[in-house]
Design a protein around this nucleic acid. Structure first.
Length: 430
RNA sequence: GGAGGGGUGGCUGAGUGGCCGAAAGCAGCGGUCUUGAAAACCGCCGACGGGCGACCGUCCGUGGGUUCGAAUCCCACCCCCUCCGCCA
């Protein structure tokens, strides 16, 4: 949620900033709404104050010796006059406040000033590259061919679709093991080397949490919703439960920054991406991800984004997978994000880099939505903190990258050295 | 699923109809003392919204109700805890 005060004082600047995101902020509508709210607030508050004062008089009259009925009679007329308007005014004020809240919840975060202009992913700007794509002396196969050719039918989409339809995978044997090794390796790296605390969290969350991080109310169609009396959704990312840990809390300054690492499955309906990446496990309804989340003081969030992105990159470096980092242009930025770096890993079968991590700062936007605050020692007041997160990394796509980049001409796949301790020393899948 | 107990400020916890936005303690902030710190003592200290301000309003799990007046009484719902049953 944008800061309503900023919207009042400098709405034009925010409108300008949001243009970069391709969003047209209806400032006149907001201003009109806000003016109506102020009017309704003032009226209802006056009436409430009057009523309160009048009620108090009854108690005082009784105390001064009047009997109860006489005291009540004394104020009855005044109360009637007030009551004639009070309910209507209060309800009107509430309704307008709800309207403002709904309006604000639908407005995306403003991009940071250094976000490049642009319409879609073609306008993203490369920041750096790491590693050199391997030169193959044979024609590299894609991960589906590599995986399916391994012993034990290690990668199996057909039987997955028998169970659950398209966009699911079954893995078995050493490939399932490698998949799990990746998770363990990433968790160990971030908790051991980068100062993140490991978390285990629910995979089902209520709508409040999803509103907090920004998936709701606008993107319900991207989510899987449970059937049943309780309103629960499968999480699309660990960002949702982990960031919302701070919801409605006031954190003491010395407990910041908080760095959390959390492995969860992620569930996405992929509504609207029919036909995209239909082959293989690039785009699945269910995938594992190791997520990094940081809660920081506002003045630290810029540096934290650079650090967090570096932590995600460290995984690829350790696995010796070539990648590049791009900064998303305004048009490609997510709803809640102020600034995002995507990390893209090299996929030989596609001859290009594909997203494997997305590292974002949300500024105070999510914190305001979920009322996650910290106590600023300078002011003594609770203020919204800043939230960040990034994949470190998407496990399924990391597995894809390994299968493709580490494949050998004979169909085997070399196990990256960093993962061998997690594979009981095994150095090759066949 | 059955029985019982409970949700109050950053935290702990008192409060069963007006004097309660709410005791007390902890934490925090300011001060005295001290070379400095600790301890001790004194003072301040809930959140949110509105107003330049004096102030005003809302908030005691949520939503209704009773009442001139509700943290306090009634109803429904949500959540937590204990015991029993069932179960991974």
């Amino acid at each position: 949620m944008l800061d309503i005060r900023a919207l009042r004082q400098d709405g034009e600047a925010l409108r300008e900033a949001l243009k970069k995101k391709g969003y047209d902020l209806d400032l006149p509508a907001f201003n009109a709404l806000d003016a109506r709210r102020k009017d309704a607030d003032v009226r209802s508050q006056e009436l409430q104050a009057q009523r309160k004062k009048t009620s108090k008089q009854v108690g005082e009259l009784i105390k001064s010796g009047l009997d109860v009925d006489a005291a009540k009679a004394r104020v009855a007329e005044t109360l009637q006059e007030i009551d004639a308007q009070l309910d209507d005014e209060v309800n009107r004020a509430k309704a307008i406040q709800d309207e403002i809240r709904d309006f604000l919840m639908g407005v995306p975060n403003a991009p940071a000033s250094d976000v490049p202009a642009g319409k879609d992913e073609d306008d993203n700007v490369e920041v750096r590259q790491w590693g050199t794509p391997r030169a193959f002396d044979f024609e590299p196969r894609d991960h589906v061919d590599v995986g399916e050719a391994l012993a034990e039918g290690a990668l199996d989409f057909e039987r997955a679709s028998k169970l659950s339809g398209a966009r699911f995978a079954v893995m078995s044997g050493q490939l399932a093991r490698l998949h799990r090794a990746l998770i363990d390796f990433m968790l160990d790296l971030h908790s051991g080397e980068h100062g993140y605390q490991e978390l285990y969290v629910p995979y089902l969350v209520g709508p409040e949490a999803l509103r907090g991080t920004g998936q709701l109310p606008k993107f319900e169609e991207d989510l899987f919703k449970m059937q049943g009396e309780r309103e629960l959704y499968l999480i699309p990312t660990a960002e949702v439960p982990v960031t919302n840990l701070a919801a409605e809390e006031i954190l003491e300054a010395e407990t910041l920054p908080r760095r959390y690492v959390c492995h969860t499955p992620c569930f996405r309906s992929e509504a609207g991406s029919h036909g995209r990446d239909t082959r293989g496990m690039i785009r699945q309804h269910q995938f594992e991800k190791v997520e990094l989340v940081q809660l920081v003081r506002p003045e630290d969030s810029e540096a934290a984004l650079e650090a967090l992105t570096g932590h995600a990159e460290a995984v690829l470096k350790a696995l010796n997978l070539p990648y590049r980092v791009v900064i998303l242009c305004g048009g490609d930025l997510g709803f809640s994000a102020a600034k995002t770096y995507d990390i893209e890993v090299w996929l030989p079968s596609q001859g290009r880099y594909r997203e494997i991590s997305s590292c974002s700062t949300f500024g105070a936007y999510q914190a305001r939505r979920m009322q996650a605050r910290w106590r600023n020692p300078d002011t003594g007041k609770p203020e919204p903190l800043h939230t960040l997160n990034g994949s470190g990394l998407a496990v399924g796509r990391a597995l894809v990258a390994i299968l493709e980049n580490y494949q050998n001409e004979d169909g085997s796949v070399t196990v990256p050295e960093a993962l061998r301790p997690y594979m009981r020393g095994r150095d090759c899948l066949r």
